[in-house]
Design a protein around this nucleic acid. Structure first.
Lengths: 153, 153
DNA sequence: CGCAATTCAATTGCGCACAATCTAATTACG
DNA sequence: CGTAATTAGATTGTGCGCAATTGAATTGCG
């Protein structure tokens, strides 16, 4: 894969686009790998992320979950309603600040954590690289994300 | 960031989940970075990917574009209709195999390529890492994607 | 105190992403 | 040859992801 100078009359995908495309593809590959593992739990991948956030710390406001996952209320409101309908979480207004809706795990939602342990193991196997490699890649991606966010002010 | 053995009664996000989450976040950061750059061109990011594919090789069947980008007809059909309505591409049945719909650039679609040169430059700047770093990261991601796909048979 | 600005969540609208299903065209095979 | 299997694309339905708007609650400031 050689790098040629940009030539508007002889277009090639630039490295930046290749990198972006590689991330795009890897992200989709991840969600596709998670899908069959999460299906028995009745969760989609973004719902699983929300459950992880709640397993780490129960009874959080929507805003806190959104900050953690980088999602806004337009995404979370319907998603949380579906989790509520599945009987995994409860939604109640904070008494001290009635603007906030606090999300808490139901007994069923808390127990799902045990069924989910197999998921991480299966993913670890599918990732198929060493611990150190995974750490490095994770940190590079986090750094890249930070630079992109910073570049966008 | 220390690694502790898995303990179902004291849950922590596993490295695999952290890696997945990092990719998820980086992918979103990329699309957010592209968004304001592509807006003046009247393109979304997936539409931009399709245009790149067509700038590389004009007059492709939907299937070929889908294979290139990892998208199916359920995603591409409406997307291509929008590109057609924007006057950037034309859709016509292949005469030799009427199952296929060939997508070709209009004059307007071809010219858009010149306006798009600034996009890659801006992304390159936002990515903010060296050429070698970007190459390495790209290749690691491609390898990871391949392993994930392979693990899913 | 009282009004303006801010914050939080919900809602609306648009555009992917993908499974499942459908139709039409082509190819394979007995 | 003719039927079955395959292939291409479109359609439908569900669920994100995000911008923009709304409405209610809270905070800040004169």
């Amino acid at each position: 894969m050689q790098k040629k100078p940009r030539n508007p009359d002889n277009f090639e995908i630039e490295l930046d686009a290749q990198l972006c495309f590689a991330i795009y593809g890897a992200a989709h590959a991840f969600t596709r790998t998670y899908k069959p593992l999460l299906e028995p739990l009745g969760l989609t991948y973004p719902q699983y992320l929300v459950m992880i956030a709640l397993w780490e710390e129960d009874d959080q406001p929507v805003k806190a979950i959104g900050d953690r996952l980088g999602l806004d209320s337009g995404t979370l409101s319907p998603l949380l309603k579906r989790l509520e309908q599945s009987g995994l979480v409860a939604r109640k207004r904070d008494r001290d600040d009635e603007r906030q809706v606090r999300i808490s795990l139901t007994a069923k939602g808390g127990e799902l954590r045990h069924q989910a342990t197999g998921v991480a193991q299966a993913i670890g196997k599918a990732v198929g690289c060493s611990f150190d490699e995974a750490v490095t890649l994770r940190d590079e991606l986090i750094a890249l994300k930070q630079r992109l966010i910073k570049a966008g002010e």
